[in-house]
Structures are given as structure tokens and as C-alpha cells.
């Protein structure tokens, strides 16, 4: 029994830390324009209908005017929708369990987000500023890597 336990312990401690991986944004314009104000959220973190809704109202983007020329918006929208979690992905990951009739505008509104993170304490919020500042803890977030620590 003791040997089995020791063997299991060795296996678990030698495994790399759990990480959630998605494809990083590969489109240059999306990187530049979205990345001008916030971390570049990988497209797989939301379903296509969410990207559709977000890019349809950039003049009112979470309290900011993030307007862009329509041709630029169209390109970004096409990229994000084609690579969305329910299109390019398998519908698992962060969008798992999201009801089909819901169109969240924030990644932090996803059921899985809350399940994984719980609610951030006021102290944590003071440090990270906004809940969507993934890179504050997940340093490789824009590369699509979310380490479990």
C-alpha cells in the first residue's frame, strides 16, 4: 500500500502543472487593434455569437468607444467568429456548459469561468483591476496558455 501511494505521488508530482491551452490569435490586425487596449483574448474563449455581438457595437465597448473603420471591423469579426470556441474548437473548455440561448459579452460571465475561479475577493480585484486581466496571473494568456496556478 505504501509503495502504491509513493508511486502515485511520484506520478502526480512529476506531471506538469495543469494548463488550459487554446490557439492564440494569429491574425495581425486583431492582435494590433484589440491588443491596443487589453490582452488579446484567444477567439476560442467565446462562442461565435458572442464575437458577433461584441464586434457589432464597438462604439460602446465596455464603457469605451473602440470604433474602427467598418472594413477593419469586418476582418476582425470574420477571424474571431471562424476561430470561436464552438466553431474551431470542440465546444469544450471555457465555453462548456454555456446555454445556447445565452450570448455573453464577457469571458468572465461564462459558467466555467466562475466554476474555475470562484469570485475574486476585493483584495484580488484591487490588484488585477478588472476580472478580464487574465495576463496578471496567467502570464502566457495571450499565447493561449492558462497555467493552473
Amino acid at each position: 500500500m505504501r509503495i502504491v501511494f509513493a508511486a502515485l505521488l511520484t506520478v502526480f508530482t512529476s506531471l506538469p502543472a495543469l494548463a488550459y491551452r487554446v490557439a492564440p490569435v494569429a491574425d495581425k490586425v486583431t492582435q494590433t487593434e484589440c491588443g491596443a487596449c487589453h490582452m488579446v483574448y484567444p477567439a476560442a474563449l467565446l462562442p461565435a455569437r458572442s464575437w458577433d455581438a461584441i464586434t457589432a457595437d464597438l462604439a460602446n465597448h465596455f464603457g469605451e468607444d473602440a470604433s474602427l473603420e467598418q472594413t477593419v471591423v469586418d476582418g476582425i469579426k470574420a477571424y474571431l467568429m471562424a476561430n470561436a470556441g464552438d466553431v474551431a474548437g470542440d465546444g469544450r473548455g471555457l465555453i462548456r456548459g454555456l446555454p445556447q440561448d445565452q450570448t455573453p459579452l464577457r469571458i468572465t460571465e461564462l459558467p466555467m469561468f466562475t466554476r474555475i475561479h470562484g469570485n475574486f475577493s476585493p483584495r484580488t480585484m484591487k490588484k488585477i483591476g478588472v476580472a478580464g486581466n487574465c495576463s496578471f496571473c496567467h502570464q502566457a494568456a495571450t499565447k493561449g496558455m492558462f497555467e493552473d496556478d
Binding site: 487589453h38 465596455f62 483591476g129 478588472v130 495576463s135
Partner: peptide, 24 residues
């Protein structure tokens, strides 16, 4: 409501780096 002034994001001194509301 969160952006009454340029200094809200760019800080009171234009010589210093600022921060967007999203932490960049």
C-alpha cells in the same frame, strides 16, 4: 462614468506611463 479625464488612464503626468481600464 469611469473616464472623466484624460488623466483617468494617462495619469496626472503625461510624462509617465498610463494604464487602460483593462490593465494594459
Amino acid at each position: 462614468p469611469d473616464t472623466p479625464s484624460c488623466s483617468s488612464c494617462h495619469t496626472a503626468s503625461p510624462l509617465k506611463a498610463g494604464m487602460t481600464r483593462a490593465g494594459k
